[in-house]
Simulated assay, not measured.
Amino acid sequence: MSTYSLSAKSSMESLQSSSSLQSAPDKLAPAVTGPMVWKGSELHPAKYVLTLDASEVENIRSAVISFKLLGLPRSEINKSTFPLTSALASKLSAISTAIHRGSGVAVLRGLDAANFNDEEATIAFAGVSSYVCALRATDSYANQTLSHVRDATHDTVPEWARNIGLAGSKITSAMDFHSDRFSGDILALHVRDDGGVRSGGEQYVASFWQIYNELLEKDPAILETMATANWPFELKQKDREPYLELGPTLFFSKGKPMCQLVKAPLLGSPRIPRDPKMPALSAEQMHALHAVEELAKQFCTQLDRQKGDIQFINNLSIMHARAAYGAGQKRSTRHLLRMFLRDPAEAWEKPASFKTNFDDPFTPGRQQNLPVVDSDPWRKISGRESHG
């Protein structure tokens, strides 16, 4: 488990606080230590890749068949409807420990051997993930629980969507380092197709806690800027004008720094431009964006990826990025399934002043949508606060 030591630029008050502190650098949380603080050269695949053996793959296949025979909607996938052996259940539960108290990154490998079709892969992804983190997030704006990360740039645009941009998960351009804002504690990605050798789309991860410690020592004013609740997030609405929501990009609770820095709602993108009526970022905020990006590049590592992998990434402490892919006139075959998750047994306490924001995706009773095929890549189902 990570431990925390006091820094000269921090105070015991911040270590004990359960609310987000947004004042001077001496109120920033202490420097963090432990396995979640790492540089790219220190995080080898052998430390985070967990491989399924043939009997475990067969157990998962049997669970998929068992669930299909129940005739239930996919929203009913959970440990009781997706039965696994106690040994495999324990193996998957250990992944939650690794992503909450270890490096923050874990990859489950070997499901490619099951040769699942699209429906089976969706069931397997949700079923296996339920043993790692029991709760699945559903975006209240997009009403999506599982989304498809794919190249939709070649899709024929329907008339109603002529002025609607594709979400970041549907385009092939590179993505800077980010943590998806108020989307969920854990990011889970199932690699259905990696796009092929030398096709781009490489994934990168960086420890925000390593970045935090670096800035706390060398430039704490950047952290002060991030923790101040005046970042101008533009939140899209389905049939109305977007609205402004001010908030921080850095939170604290019980000594844990939590990053929720995503650029699309702050800067817009070529496909989804920012509304001109929205305020621009300050010079200090732009400097913070640049500094965090440069440190993430310095400390990152390329995520080891194979077809069939299920990746689990702590969305509060680990930043992720993606290289461009699919150059040329042909549609890329790269295809990942994505969910955001929470493990109630391991979930970090959230800052009191923003607890509602963090908890909203996990509102009990909200309808879950786990589509096998991505039929609507436009803003109708695209989250407004995540990706890029």
Results as ranks from 00 to 15, higher is better:
319 M>Q: 13
145 T>A: 05
162 R>Y: 05
312 F>M: 03
192 R>I: 10
280 A>C: 04
132 V>H: 01
213 N>F: 02
60 I>K: 05
188 A>F: 00
49 V>S: 01
153 T>R: 10
302 Q>Y: 00
126 A>W: 01
316 L>R: 05
262 V>T: 15
182 F>H: 12
279 P>I: 03
299 F>R: 06
104 G>D: 09
60 I>V: 14
349 E>F: 01
354 F>L: 06
236 K>L: 09
308 G>A: 04
234 E>V: 09
205 V>T: 08
188 A>P: 07
141 Y>F: 10
261 L>R: 03
250 L>S: 11
378 W>H: 08
263 K>L: 11
269 S>Q: 09
340 F>D: 10
327 A>H: 10
74 R>S: 11
189 L>H: 06
298 Q>E: 12
335 H>D: 13
92 L>D: 05
114 A>Y: 06
19 S>T: 13
19 S>L: 06
334 R>N: 10
154 H>V: 02
48 Y>E: 11
103 S>N: 11
214 E>R: 12
310 I>M: 10
33 T>A: 12
243 Y>A: 08
64 V>K: 09
249 T>V: 10
187 L>D: 07
381 I>V: 13
341 L>D: 04
57 V>C: 09
380 K>N: 15
154 H>P: 01
4 Y>T: 15
62 S>V: 06
7 S>M: 03
186 I>V: 15
20 S>L: 08
84 L>C: 07
197 V>E: 15
308 G>M: 06
116 F>V: 04
336 L>C: 07
338 R>V: 07
70 L>C: 07
153 T>L: 01
385 E>I: 03
62 S>Y: 02
388 G>Y: 05
117 N>D: 15
24 A>E: 15
80 S>D: 13
101 R>W: 00
238 K>I: 01
109 R>K: 01
386 S>T: 14
381 I>Y: 06
366 R>N: 14
269 S>I: 05
18 S>K: 14
282 S>C: 07
313 I>D: 04
264 A>W: 01
216 L>E: 12
6 L>G: 09
65 I>E: 15
326 G>K: 02
353 S>F: 02
353 S>Y: 02
56 E>L: 06
